[in-house]
Amino acid sequence: MAYFPLFLLFLLLGLSLSPVISTNSEGNALHALRRRLSDPTNVLQSWDPTLVNPCTWFHVTCDSDNHVIRLDLGNSNISGTLGPEIGDLQYLQYLELYRNGLSGKIPTELGNLKNLVSMDLYENKFEGKIPKSFAKLESLRFLRMNNNKLTGSIPRELTSLSKLKIFDVSNNDLCGTIPVDGPFATFSMESYINNRLSGPELQGLVPYDFGC
Results as ranks from 00 to 15, higher is better:
K114S: 15
L143Y: 11
A135H: 13
S139I: 00
G152Q: 07
N148M: 06
L158N: 12
I86G: 01
D173R: 09
G204V: 00
I86C: 02
V169P: 02
F58R: 14
L116P: 08
N77P: 08
S76Q: 08
S170R: 13
S25F: 10
G152T: 11
T177W: 05
L102N: 01
D39E: 13
L37F: 09
S79L: 01
L197M: 06
L113R: 06
P179R: 10
R144A: 15
E85I: 03
S76Y: 07
K105S: 10
V43E: 11
R196H: 15
L110F: 06
K105H: 05
C175K: 13
I166G: 04
L9D: 05
T108Q: 08
E138F: 09
V43K: 12
A32S: 14
L164V: 06
D120Q: 14
L15N: 07
K132P: 03
G80T: 03
S38N: 15
E26R: 05
G74F: 01
I178H: 10
L33H: 11
E157V: 09
P207G: 12
L73P: 13
W47S: 02
C55A: 02
E123D: 08
L205C: 07
T56W: 00
R196N: 15
L71Y: 04
N124Q: 08
A32Y: 01
S64L: 11
T41D: 13
L6T: 03
A32V: 00
P84R: 01
K163V: 01
V68T: 04
G104V: 04
S162I: 09
I178G: 13
N147T: 11
I69D: 03
S118Y: 00
D120A: 12
S139L: 02
